[in-house]
Amino acid sequence: MKPVDSSRADAAEFRPTRWSVVLLSAQSKAPGSQAALAALCRLYWYPLYAFVRRRGYNPEDAQDLTQGFFQHLLDHKALAQVDPLKGKFRSFLLASIQNYLSKEVDRARCLKRGGKTEFVPLDAKSAEDRYRLEPADYLTAEKIFDARWALIMLDDAMSLLSAEYAAQGKTATFEALKPFLRPIDSEALPSYEQVAGQLGIGVGAVKMLIHRLRKRYTTLLRAEVARTVSDPEEIDEELHALCDALIASEVRLI
C-alpha cells in the first residue's frame, strides 16, 4: 500500500498560481492573468460577501458590490500600485474592498442598473444562506472576514486531503481516520483497536496512518496559505494571523 503523503506529487503545488505570481502577471497584463486572479477570487469570495453584508448592505446590493469589486480587480485598477513582493492576498483583498466600498459605491450601483455582468460566478443563494448563520452581534466586518478566510483555508485543505485519498480508492480509510486529525474531544474517538478492525489492519498501522494523515493535512494547509502570500517566509506569520483571527472572532464562527 503506497503511503498517501509520499506516493503522489504534491497536488497543492500544482493548484492555481500563487498570489505573487498572479499579481506580477496581472501588472504585466500577461495572457491568462485575469483567469488566474478570477480563480483566486472564486476560492475566497465568501469572506468578501460576508464583509459587505456586515457593512449593512442588503443581499442584492452585497452581490452587486462583490461582483463590482471583482471587476475592479480584474480591470487591474487595484493592482497597479501593489508591490508583488510584499503583502498577503487576504490583507490586499480586505484593504481593497474597504477602499472600494468607500469610493466606488456609486459606480457599483451604476453597474447594477447597467446589466449584472458576472465576472466571478458566485452562488448567491448559498452565500446568503451561509450569511444568515453569521452571529448578528458585535463582531466587526473585519473580524468576520478574517475568521471566514481562516476557515476557508482549513476546509480547502481538508477537501484536498479527502480528494487525495479518494483518488487512491481510500475513502473508507480517510473517513475512519479523519476524526483523529485534530480531535476536539479525544475521549469521543473510537479506539485504535476498533479502527484497526474496521480497516482490517493492525493497531500499529492505524497509528502510522494517523500520523501520515496529520502530517499531510498540515502540509496541504501550509500549501494553501502559501498560495496567498508573496514569500514562503510569510507562511508562519499568516498562519499565526489566521489563528488569531479565529480566536478574535470569540469562537462565534467556528
Partner: peptide
C-alpha cells in the same frame, strides 16, 4: 476542544485552532 480550550461547533470534527497551530 480538550486540547486548546476553544469552543467549536459540534458540526466540526477538527479543531480549527489546533489545526492551524499544528501547521505552524
Amino acid at each position: 476542544c480538550k486540547v486548546c480550550g476553544t469552543l467549536v461547533s459540534v458540526s466540526r470534527e477538527v479543531c480549527p485552532v489546533c489545526a492551524l497551530r499544528a501547521a505552524i
